[in-house]
Amino acid sequence: MGQLIEEQYVWRLPVRLYHWINAFCITLLFITGLYIASPVLSPSIGEAVWYHKMAWFRYVHFGTAFVFLANFIFRLYWALFGDDKYGRFAGFKPWSPIWWGKPFKEQLKSYLFIKQEEPNYSGHNPVAALTHFLFVFCGSLFMILTGLAMYGENNPGGLTDSLFGWTVLIFGSSQSMHTMHHVVAWVFPVYLILHLYAVVRHDIVERSSITSSIITGYKHKVEECPEYTD
């Protein structure tokens, strides 16, 4: 058994809102995206032009994409300029060797069972920050750039195409870009599994209420009281 020694307000409302809008958008984008790639035959009831099954899935994908993009930009702003100790990503400096030093190694060793102790962080631990960065930040950026480039293709020379159309040069052709947008889409379900596992595990091991923290904002510090263990 443990004893509650401290309650910490870690995730402020902007971060929590960002998190859930993000999770919602990604889920929707993933489902509609897969549907776009493998639609089901659905004969219309009436004129084809009245009936918008495929168009509707694409519409939802694009609509959600812009909410997702706005949310992404907001989080970026908050990470760089927000008045938020835990949400700032201020300590995240992967370009500096110091960042890869002791805290990162200890957290990694603990995850790999090389070390007994479980470091306890109020905000993101360094390994978590790195995974968020690689999967969520880089993954989102990739989806946004390729997505907008594809989105602009119906109007070459238009605004979206002029701003993002160059992306196609990286992939060689529009078809390869579609393929890569589709491959990288799978980064998100993979991340979700790692993420949910890590969250639940930390909660069980540290009893820090981390799972509910992303809803309530509060994490708890718990001290082991050996006399209560059986």
């Binding site: 035959l41 659905s42 084809a48 032009v49 009936y51 495929m54 168009a55």
Partner: peptide
């Protein structure tokens, strides 16, 4: 294209 938008596909 109207068939595409409607979801009416050749399989």
């Amino acid at each position: 294209r109207p068939y595409f938008d409607a979801g009416m596909f050749v399989e």
